[in-house]
Design a protein around this nucleic acid. Structure first.
Lengths: 231, 231
DNA sequence: CAGAATCCCATTCGATACTG
DNA sequence: CAGTATCGAATGGGATTCTG
């Protein structure tokens, strides 16, 4: 009984679940626990405080969040940083390696979205919406897109999307001056315009969308994203 | 007490852990459980029977393997198929959608391999070796590579790698006629040649490697793969 | 061999309460 | 706000046994 427990402890002290040393198995040691990858997804859009993470991940408990953050810190995916004196808060921030997990996380999302069992018309968090936009870019349209800056205010959260030289970038925070500003009460209002081809006018009339700025550019913007075909 | 349990059952009946409906969250519902992604990785190289999967995934129990296979089947990642009468065996085989998970799994492995905490010189399964080769292709070298077929016999397992038109393909099974045939007692012998730049002659002398066929082509082959820089 | 079924302990998780 | 502490319930998973 004692020996059984000791064995377990020894194995876990390595942090290893899988005997296998291949890259994927190692990646799963780091990001394979429940919530871990979604925490990273949140932080891809910018640093966050503990409570912001908790609010953005409905269903996660403080305990699990604490454990995951500590685990991810040990693995070198993120760091905990004290913000300068004015705001004495501590924020979690991805390391360079942590940021490089973005392609892996996006590939998983892109793959999953092609399942016939995935319903894209379900409630979505604001961060999910931003990540999905990056994932669902249509490369040929994006290559021909004019540069633009699109601000989004979803509920109380601010996001800024920029397209420059065919490159998409999204982050948390306000844009400053932007070509288009969208205000929506919920993420799925914007998702409706992006993925369900609902005209923005209809969403303004019925879903509380508010559009400011260049409406023609908004139309163009909305053509840059699309769901992949199902398999 | 009853109501608490009912709530739990309802949520799990969706198979949903995360409230979030984004693609990544959905992908994690499907592949986020322990072992699930490694099972898929095994099947990417070709269909396998239950006992083969169990042997190839050291540490997995029959119970967990059964559960995962059933879950993956329900999600449409794989199917269970009866082989024709002569061999009355049943094999697990990825669906088309399941095969499309390959980029996501490889991106995760590629990312993980860039961690300073990942040691590539640890024991490796044969399937991991094959997957890692696909992941660690050097695109520019691969583009200029001549077509070739390389057979590998690792322990008792046979694999066949082909390069045609700059495209890498690997699968389980024998090659038939091939340009180079490698026999190694363990996967890491071949990994040493690929990633640690150990000359094949040294491995033949000291690690039990056996090379048959075109040795010059083998040298060329070994230059096509390399570990990504650490971050 | 290919699993299903059972047993049972260890771990995990979520809810709640508490603290600096 | 940013966690820590504790506890009970749920789940996970290894070992074993049984069946076709």
């Amino acid at each position: 009984m004692k020996s059984l427990k000791e064995t377990t402890v020894r194995e876990r002290s390595h942090g290893r679940w899988y005997e296998d040393a291949c890259g994927t198995a190692f990646g799963l040691e780091v990001l394979g626990e429940r919530w871990a990858m979604l925490i990273v997804r949140e932080l891809l859009l910018g640093s966050l405080r503990f409570s912001d993470l908790k609010n953005n991940l409905p269903g996660i408990s403080a305990k699990v969040l604490t454990e995951r953050l500590e685990s991810l810190r040990k693995w070198g995916v993120l760091t905990r940083r004290q913000t300068p004196p004015p705001l004495a808060a501590q924020v979690y921030e991805l390391t360079e390696w942590g940021y490089h997990a973005e392609p892996a996380i996006m590939e998983l999302g892109r793959w999953a979205a092609r399942s016939v069992m995935h319903n894209p018309h379900l409630p979505l968090s604001a961060a999910s919406l931003m990540t999905s936009m990056k994932t669902m870019q249509l490369p040929d349209r994006m290559a021909a897109a004019p540069d633009m800056t699109v601000g989004m205010v979803v509920g109380l959260e601010h996001y800024c999307v920029s397209i420059a030289g065919g490159e998409f970038a999204g982050r948390r925070g306000e844009c400053g001056p932007c070509d288009v500003l969208l205000r929506a009460p919920a993420p799925m209002v914007i998702a409706g315009a992006l993925y369900a081809d609902i005209p923005p006018e209809a969403l303004e009339a019925e879903a509380g969308l508010v559009v400011e700025g260049d409406r023609a550019l908004l139309k163009r913007f909305l053509t840059l994203f699309g769901l992949p075909p199902k398999l």
